[in-house]
Design a protein around this nucleic acid. Structure first.
Lengths: 241, 241
DNA sequence: AGTCTGCAGATTGTCAACAATCTGCAATCA
DNA sequence: TGATTGCAGATTGTTGACAATCTGCAGACT
């Protein structure tokens, strides 16, 4: 009986798992995994996270799980209510609107700084993403387009050469995703518009037009907010009637 | 025999302490207390936080302390190194410079929104703070002025009517304080200048000039950064020579 | 002398047990 | 019938103990 543990089913990861444990604590691993599942929508917004369930599902004890909960709470992904439990945070439309305002300001700064500091190689990578967007928008695969969109802004964020800004930006975007995941699927209708905006942004950054890059990105975010708002108001006014 | 616990030395807080425990967990309390001490500079930047020391100092076990550490780590106030311990975060000049850039963007948004949404009563409160600043600047008490400055920006932040923005702003300011506390005392020489800037900001917000409020606040932050940089370069180039 | 090996103490990582609180249901009483 | 009280199970809060890792120093070896 060499293995009396539940035993992860995959042999290849077995050896690497120990290597991971050498660098990261279980709490960190649990945090990453939960974060991934929440952002990906595998755990629904508003769902209750039971300590023992999470612990046994991940094969650890409650200690690391509780530590992960505290970090996720500080990150704004879950809310803890004493003696009641932790819940995946629900972001209301009003709150999402607030996050959009913040994101617009951060994205504007990203545009300004990226216009100053981006490299030629990064510009080319951005253009490559936009090209892929063009291809995807014909197939109308919303999920793929969404992933490209994340990649685009992530790359732009790194080009700003400001880690504090990037970390802050990611945090806000995560919380916004919390809202988007809770709502219905993103409307595919305005993908072409969005692609055009991305194209204009790359152009502005490429010629190092700081003011234009900033204003384009601010508008890009604020327009996104309006699109979401509109698709919510018309498509499904709550649930049914 | 009624009280066999270590017993806090203060009778008035004794009854209220239990009431606090009814609403907040020990981990939350520990987190708040550590946060306060770190921001206030009672615990030096770079200092190591020993789990058992903190636990016994606050009269709790290691569990809640570890949970508090996770939250503080996510907030960027401490850094945890596996199997080595947690340390009050050191913010370098380069990192502080990054935070200033972010803060400028957030503060700009605060100005823009506050100009839209501030109430007459809040404007009067701002003016009252500026009046106090005028009085304090004559006595040259840097600590008092610093407190007023925090109060000013905090009030302005609330006037923006955006909780997400306010929380984000506080987080960035906390991390900046981490840097300021690590460096020598703030130079008192430019207090008059700073007070003038505050006055102009209130005026812009009061007449609801969004663009001006935004640009004034952005400049206010960026100038602060330059002042800090300058006082560092001339006053004490490291430690001595 | 200098480097390496191997302990001993201290500190962190993880776990399992205990105490306190909450939630839902059933039995009781007006 | 309706409200209330009291329990039982489940869940969270907290603690203390055990295992693993790190750090510094003393002693041995080249």
């Amino acid at each position: 009986m060499a293995t009396n543990q539940p035993a992860a089913a995959e042999p290849p990861t077995a050896a690497q798992a120990l290597e991971l444990l050498r660098a990261q604590s279980l709490a960190t691993l649990v945090q990453s995994e939960l974060e991934r599942r929440i952002i990906a929508g595998e755990i629904a917004a508003g769902a209750k996270l039971n300590e023992v369930d999470v612990a046994s599902a991940l094969g650890v004890s409650r200690g690391p799980v509780r530590e992960a909960f505290r970090a996720l709470s500080q990150a704004g992904l879950v809310s803890v209510e004493k003696n009641r439990g932790v819940f995946v945070r629900q972001v209301s439309l009003a709150e999402a609107s607030e996050y959009y305002e913040v994101r617009a300001a951060l994205e504007g700064l990203i545009g300004r700084l990226a216009a100053e500091r981006i490299t030629a190689e990064e510009v080319e990578q951005l253009r490559a993403i936009v090209r892929r967007m063009h291809r995807v928008q014909k197939s109308r695969r919303a999920e793929e387009y969404f992933a490209l969109n994340v990649e685009f802004h992530e790359l732009l964020g790194r080009a700003a050469r400001n880690n504090a800004l990037l970390a802050n930006y990611r945090s806000v975007v995560n919380q916004l995703d919390l809202y988007r995941r809770a709502t219905i699927s993103r409307s595919v209708g305005n993908i072409p518009l969005s692609t055009q905006e991305h194209e204009a942004i790359v152009d502005a950054v490429a010629v190092r037009n700081k003011a234009k890059a900033e204003s384009l990105l601010v508008q890009h975010v604020l327009v996104s907010r309006e699109r979401l708002r509109a698709s919510l108001a018309t498509a499904t006014p709550a649930s049914s009637s």
